[in-house]
């Protein structure tokens, strides 16, 4: 699958597997991320996202397969690879005993900057990340959002060509989340390549040109967000009524209009998959013609759960039909 962008390949993985004893954390994972693009890695906890990030950042060795980042092999050239990458993990890893500024200076010095260069780079990043006022305070006094920004800044000190962001918005409030999204966009504008893991489909939808869905260590689907949504989940319309009697009438009315309604009596609501906006108009018209009063109408994008369930059931079905073929 060739993702949008089409620059030089910056992350290439082929058949990556990882076993911990008898547990298979990853199995046969391929990945292609091109320069200047954001690739999303979507999956629930335990899907293997963090393990893949750890392999690609040379923190743990794959049990199978090969991968290169910025042209350097994750197993054979870990030192050179680390010069090209920045990593922000799920938990803000800053030195709590140091000030915000000293945290950044420390990283810069370890990357080989002289004292003056290190200070200049730290100030530049503090400015960019809105941390100038708090620069002299110990990091342990920072709020969650500030800490995360400092952590992000720390991973960018060396101007990495490839940035790994492992669930960078987990646990952040909405404003801080928007902040992180802007940082990701700015990174890409500046020419960096970003691998972003998330549990939220909307986050990946907003930021990335291509994505991979992981489940139980395997790739469930890959492509652009558009392709995936088309292939997987459809949007759904949820119509709620005042009375169960209305709901019972609505079922046949919607079926009669060529739609596939699913009734939920407990919530006096009906869920209808919609393909186009015309379907929404059809729903409203059909119910209006039947003289039904709707108390609420919502159109929802597929959630990660729906994408998952849909992908899973598709996978189960194809496995089933393969077995059926084999029996014949």
């Amino acid at each position: 699958m060739n993702p949008a962008g089409g620059g030089e390949p910056m992350i290439v993985a082929r058949g990556i597997g990882k076993r911990y004893g008898s547990v298979t954390a990853l199995d046969g994972v391929d990945l292609d991320v091109h320069q200047g693009s954001v690739h999303g890695l979507l999956g629930h906890n335990g899907a293997g996202k963090t393990t893949l990030v750890r392999i690609l950042t040379a923190q743990t060795r794959p049990s199978a397969g090969r991968a290169t980042v910025s042209g350097f092999d994750v197993v054979d050239q870990p030192e050179r690879l680390r010069r090209k990458i920045g990593l922000t993990g799920q938990f803000a890893s800053v030195d709590e005993q140091l000030s915000g500024r000293d945290n950044l200076i420390l990283i810069a010095r370890l990357l080989g900057a002289g004292r003056r260069q290190a200070r200049a780079r730290a100030d530049e990043l503090l400015e960019s990340f809105g941390l100038v006022d708090a620069a002299g305070r110990l990091a342990r006094t920072f709020s969650g959002g500030m800490r995360r920004r400092l952590d992000l800044a720390a991973s960018l000190v060396g101007r990495p060509a490839v940035v790994f962001l492992d669930e960078p918005t987990t646990g952040l409030d909405p404003a801080a989340r928007l902040n992180v999204w802007q940082i990701v966009r700015d990174l890409v504008r500046d020419g960096a390549t970003v691998l972003l893991t998330s549990q939220y489909l909307d986050e990946i939808d907003r930021l990335s040109e291509s994505l991979t869905v992981l489940s139980d260590g395997r790739i469930l689907a890959a492509g652009s967000p558009m392709e995936l949504k088309h292939q997987v989940g459809r949007r759904t319309a949820v119509v709620r009524f005042e009375a169960v009697a209305d709901l019972k009438v609505a079922g046949p009315v919607l079926s009669g209009s060529g739609l596939r309604p699913a009734l939920d009596e407990a919530r006096t609501s009906v869920t209808v998959p919609v393909e186009t906006s015309r379907d929404i108009a059809t729903i409203v018209r059909a119910l209006d013609d039947a003289g039904l009063e709707l108390s609420e109408l919502q159109v929802a994008e597929p959630t990660l759960d729906e994408v998952y369930l849909s992908l899973m059931s598709a996978a189960a079905q194809s496995a089933g039909s393969e077995r059926a073929e084999a029996v014949k």
Binding site: G86, G112, G158, A161
Partner: peptide
Amino acid sequence: MTIAGGTIGGGPRAADAGTW
């Protein structure tokens, strides 16, 4: 938050990328 051109990221456009 505004980020002045090319200061946070890396890649080919960063002015002194790879100097360390």
